[in-house]
């Protein structure tokens, strides 16, 4: 991800590298043993990380792709080659399509809320008000909370008998909600907790970006009588657009990959309402031992994420001012 974002123009870099090559090969002053030694150095320096990447990223990646075309035994060994049968059965399964739908709802809700609230908090914390540094610390607090702690914390809040939310509802004479046992509300609860978890990081990144906008831009606008809201939309937003772009991609990918909170709070229930794609992969692979099918699901998820990221790059990059 990072490399994609920092290389503003990957094609340029590729071209440069291509031009360098013939120079190295034909350069008369370039003595062969030195070239060989350079290669060796390159290998020594790159070797360790290459090894780690092969073992933990590339091998599993290709193994997953390979397994997705097979039936497997419960040890994860491929047994029968079945071509695209896994893909066909998945895409025609109503349970899987339901998961897909739930995931989209979840991802869109989480991304939109995280970005909006993060931006709102960052903008609020950028105001010069007495005691604001206290809020800056509080707002970024969730960065230091682990998923398991957060899950337990939210389970308490959502608990129908002792939970804070229902006590509040009680006070206001509203009907009690079984947050984690009613399908629609369970999704809402999971979205709320995820957004809460995301906010610390998002806030911090946005806050940093807003702080780095030169204050004279606002002063110049202020003198010209430009309203605060206009300043936010026409100065702050364009100035932090690279960060906005970065955070939106990170948030989208992260929410597609959500697992911890789901597992601890709802375990995919009730009635599969929060059984998102990643959680389904986990269930199929490690609870049902259906490795081939789980691999297929992984490949599909990877394609979905790649597709959305691609769209984001296409649509948003035009509006980003580096």
């Amino acid at each position: 991800m990072d490399t994609q974002i920092t290389n503003k123009n990957p094609q340029m870099r590729y071209k440069q590298r291509k031009e360098e090559k013939p120079l190295m090969a034909t350069g008369l002053s370039y003595n062969k043993s030195k070239a060989l030694r350079d290669r060796l150095y390159a290998l020594i320096f790159l070797g360790p990380s290459l090894l780690v990447l092969i073992v933990f990223v590339f091998f599993p990646m290709f193994r997953t792709l390979y397994l997705s075309f097979f039936l497997t035994n419960n040890l994860g060994k491929p047994t029968v080659f079945i071509g695209f049968a896994n893909y066909i059965s998945l895409l025609s399964s109503s349970a899987y399509l339901h998961s897909l739908q739930a995931t989209f709802i979840y991802v869109i809700a989480v991304s939109c809320l995280t970005l909006t609230l993060g931006l709102l908090l960052a903008q609020t914390a950028s105001q010069k008000v007495r005691g604001i540094s206290f809020f800056r610390t509080i707002f970024s607090g969730t960065m230091g909370v682990s998923v398991s702690v957060a899950a337990i914390f939210w389970l308490f809040i959502f608990n129908p008998s002792v939970g804070m939310l229902d006590q509040l509802a009680n006070l206001l004479h509203l009907p009690a909600i079984n947050w984690l046992t009613q399908p629609g509300w369970a999704m809402t609860a999971v979205v709320i907790s995820t957004v809460w978890m995301n906010l610390g990081f998002t806030f911090l990144i946005f806050f940093g970006a807003i702080q780095s906008v030169p204050s004279t831009l606002y002063e110049a606008a202020q003198i010209e009588g430009v309203s605060k809201i206009y300043q936010f939309f026409h100065i702050t937003l364009p100035m932090i657009s690279p960060t906005l772009f970065f955070v939106s991609i990170i948030t989208l990918i992260e929410s597609f990959k959500s697992f911890g909170l789901i597992d601890l709070m709802t375990a995919g229930g009730p009635d599969n309402a929060t059984n998102l794609l990643v959680y389904r992969i986990y269930q199929d692979a490690f609870l049902s031992g259906n490795y081939g099918l789980a691999s297929t699901e992984s490949v599909i998820l990877a394609l979905i994420i790649a597709f959305f990221t691609f769209i984001q790059f296409k649509v948003l990059e035009k509006r980003v001012n580096y």
Partner: peptide, 14 residues
């Protein structure tokens, strides 16, 4: 009713 020019110009880069 005045205007100001800043040392760093305060232009909007975008």
């Amino acid at each position: 009713a005045l205007t100001m020019v800043f040392q760093n110009y305060a232009l909007f880069p975008f």
